[in-house]
Design a protein around this nucleic acid. Structure first.
Lengths: 120, 120
DNA sequence: CTGTATCCACAACGATACTG
DNA sequence: CAGTATCGTTGTGGATACAG
């Protein structure tokens, strides 16, 4: 079940796989979150907050809820006191690996950080 | 020059290739536009408007300007009267092919259109 | 044909503070 | 530790009309 095809809407009359994919993982932070979950397998909320550099806890929380709803991310509560939670990719979520890998490779090969400030 | 690495900012202190890639092609329509330019090589404005199902001329115009500024899309004026313009991918833009292909493949394999309305 | 100009609605994001 | 609440800002997109 968790690796079945998903029904996804798509703007316009004709359905387009690229548009649909963009709708699912096209938010700014979604690919980054998935990227880190691919690398670490399972992460707690604050661990993710540290990994996903630059995201706020509000946006991370919303994004995880969104990805969970779409069946890409699974949330599992580990303990009550102290509260511990693990986020991981579902089987379906892991099928996104080629997409994330392609993005990471392209970024690595074709992009680079802006020039460093010179020391002073 | 047109296939050199690009300097791209990225939220947070640490630079991340996935975040940077998401910043460049993470807008809703960007991957779709690139997808169609990969398939058709060169397209006029209205042809693109028809191909990219569901986009408005305003958003297409903005997106093309954005992609042109980033060195991904090239605009070429073919004739003055009547005004004809061709959009195509730059050499740099074509390096995105694996990313778009991965998205298209995933969408094709893992997603599907919502259930058709039954005829009545 | 190839766009721009407006105006508007709403989604996305960030900072900060606060809760169980 | 794992979030939510609030507020404000910016981004994104759609409809419609208009322009060279």
């Amino acid at each position: 079940m968790s690796d079945r095809r998903r029904e996804v809407e798509c703007a316009g009359e004709d359905w387009c796989p690229v548009t649909a994919t963009s709708a699912l993982v096209g938010k700014k932070w979604h690919p980054v979150i998935i990227h880190h979950l691919l690398r670490h397998d399972r992460l707690g909320f604050n661990a993710l907050l540290r990994e996903v550099n630059g995201i706020s806890s509000k946006v991370l929380s919303e994004s995880l809820g969104d990805l969970e709803e779409k069946g890409i991310v699974a949330r599992k509560q580990i303990s009550e006191k102290p509260l511990r939670v693990d986020y991981s990719l579902t089987k379906f979520g892991r099928t996104l690996e080629p997409v994330i890998t392609a993005m990471r490779n392209w970024g690595t090969e074709r992009l680079e950080p802006p020039e460093e400030r010179t020391e002073h």
